[in-house]
Design a protein around this nucleic acid. Structure first.
Lengths: 153, 153
DNA sequence: CAATAGTCTATTAAAAGAATAGGTAAAGTA
DNA sequence: TACTTTACCTATTCTTTTAATAGACTATTG
């Protein structure tokens, strides 16, 4: 399950991706427009900043802005930072492998095999989808619902 | 993330699937052989029983046994019972849909589109994998590692 | 009726998730 | 330089979920 933290983080990143190249955005503006508790958002942005995904500027005219272009940042990267590994169990995680303490034999564990498939499918989607992709897609969704609307008027 | 509860539940179901047609298994035996806290296991088995996946018998010679053949029970069903919906966010769940309280427009939400893909991929795997499938697969894994061993001796 | 084995409800302990509080530091601006 | 703005950082709190335990109750079998 995606946590609120990751959901807020994705929303914030999409917002900042949309503002890419247009200077910094205030935390308070982001919090208000995206309906995210401001203090909570601060922590999230800070974490993303410390990993290099965002840059920030203090004082008047300050705020947050993308540290890298939106087409170079995937959903998978953001979720891993905010929620940890994508894998449903640690013994199939590539980025954070950990053995199951009570597993008698990892090689023949049936649960593991299935969960590895789930992990791989999830990672393929999330690592293959960038912020830029999602902006394009939601713009398409918007214009197609508007077209449908216009057509009916 | 798969909870301990679901992991224990899957392990127990696989164990009982292996014993399919061979009469009931004691909770205490299952708990010991699979290294699951007995009292916790009781609750898990009870839940699966109440949904019809297991049957039980009290008194001497009693225990738990499959309520349906192993090829007719998927990982997805078991996990949904023990951990709830597979979807990473409730607004993309087919079995337990719930609107996001703060979402301005579900139709154009970019996060939702991506999470729907994740849900669908996950559900396809978990609903398409039965207990019987997994038993066969882990037997194959076992015999192939044994062959490799024999070959090297 | 006594031993066996599952059933059920309640409780607790620990961890994670979500949010809040309040002070600190840097960057501009008067 | 003083003031305002805005991000930075640490700690704390509140709530929910997860994991596990306790103990009494009920059905079955010999």
């Amino acid at each position: 399950m995606l946590s609120m933290k990751a959901k807020y983080g994705l929303r914030a990143m999409l917002f900042l991706a949309r503002a890419y190249g247009q200077g910094p955005t205030l935390i308070s503006e982001l919090a208000e427009k995206e309906a995210i508790p401001k203090k909570f958002l601060e922590l999230i942005l800070l974490e993303l900043r410390n990993k290099g995904y965002l840059h920030s500027k203090k004082g008047k005219g300050g705020g947050y802005y993308m540290g890298r272009p939106p087409h170079s940042i995937s959903f998978g990267e953001i979720i891993r930072i905010l929620d940890g590994p994508l894998a449903p169990i640690p013994c199939v995680s590539l980025t954070a492998y950990r053995r199951c303490p009570d597993c008698p034999d990892e090689k023949t564990c049936g649960i593991r095999v299935v969960m590895k498939e789930v992990r791989d499918a999830t990672a393929k989607i999330l690592d293959g989808t960038t912020l830029a992709d999602v902006l394009v897609r939601s713009d398409h969704l918007l214009s197609s619902t508007q077209e449908a609307l216009t057509y009916h008027i």
